[in-house]
Amino acid sequence: MKEFSSYGIAGARVDRIAKNAECNKNLIYIYFENKETLFTTVLQKHLTRVYEEIDFTPEDLPGYAARVFDFAMTHPDLMRLMAWYSLEQKVGSLTERASARDKKIKAITNAQSAGQVGTTFTPGFLLTAIMALATAWSATNPFGPSHDTDAAKMPSETRDAIAKAVSLIIKENRSEKKT
């Protein structure tokens, strides 16, 4: 995790990983075949942990956004690892990540059908907006930390503001319904 979150796939060195893990470099290649598979395995392991630790609640999307914010702020290595994955998309697709996304979109669709979430925005747009807001102040985001330098000093207030913003985004726009 440390090697890949610091250097990405291209910059990571299997010899450093082997040295830090106190194992033989060749054994890493025998088990994982290549550096990309090792990276994907590390990322998938940590994303699985995220899916288990952060309950997705379509009936409480502001609460979900607050939990994602807390996680992003306390796990900068994972946020960097995800940033490297996004930058170096040459590795294989993460089917579990796509599956988790699809389940969330379906849950939002169902919440919209049940009237729990407004329909002004599509489920995919809502999920993207929620994740963008919830992770905007993480160390890897080029805007949040540099544009709102006080947010890191006031995580509780920032979390509350994110939840409020999500609450406003998911509300039904009544003026659009009338037209």
Rank of each mutant, 00 (worst) to 15 (best):
N110M: 14
Y64F: 10
Q89D: 05
A98R: 08
T74L: 12
A98E: 06
Q112E: 06
A98P: 06
G8W: 13
T37W: 05
S6F: 09
P58H: 02
A12S: 09
P62G: 14
W84G: 00
V91A: 12
R49E: 13
L27N: 14
A12F: 03
Y29N: 06
A66F: 02
A10E: 03
I54M: 01
Y85C: 09
N26W: 01
G92S: 13
L61E: 01
L43E: 07
M79T: 05
F71I: 01
Q112C: 08
L38F: 08
A72Y: 09
D60K: 05
S6E: 14
Y85H: 07
A21C: 03
Q44T: 09
D15N: 06
I28A: 11
V42W: 01
T57I: 07
V50L: 08
R101E: 04
A18G: 04
R16N: 14
E52I: 14
I105V: 15
A72M: 07
Y51K: 05
G11Y: 00
A100G: 06
V14L: 14
N24K: 11
I9A: 00
Y29G: 07
F4Y: 15
N110K: 09
C23V: 04
Q112L: 11
A12D: 04
E33A: 15
D77P: 11
D60S: 02
I108Y: 01
K2E: 01
T37L: 15
E33V: 15
Q44V: 13
L43S: 04
S99V: 00
G11I: 01
R49Y: 12
I17K: 09
K35I: 02
A111H: 13
K106P: 01
G92H: 09
L47N: 12
L94R: 12
E36M: 11
K25G: 03
Q112D: 06
M82K: 10
K19P: 00
K106W: 02
G63K: 04
I17H: 12
S113C: 06
N110V: 04
S93T: 09
E22F: 01
K25L: 06
G8P: 03
E52T: 15
E3T: 07
I105F: 14
E52C: 15
T109P: 14
G115S: 00
L47D: 02
V14D: 01
T48W: 10
D55P: 13
N34G: 15
P76G: 07
I108F: 07
Y64T: 00
A111S: 04
G8V: 06
I108S: 00
E59I: 06
S113H: 11
A111R: 10
Q44H: 13
A72C: 06
T95R: 13
P76I: 07
K19D: 08
M82E: 10
H75S: 04
I54V: 09
S5K: 04
G63R: 13
W84H: 08
N110H: 07
L27K: 10
A107W: 11
K25T: 10
K45M: 14
E59T: 07
T57C: 05
M73T: 11
R101T: 04
G92N: 05
A10N: 12
W84R: 04
K19A: 11
G8M: 06
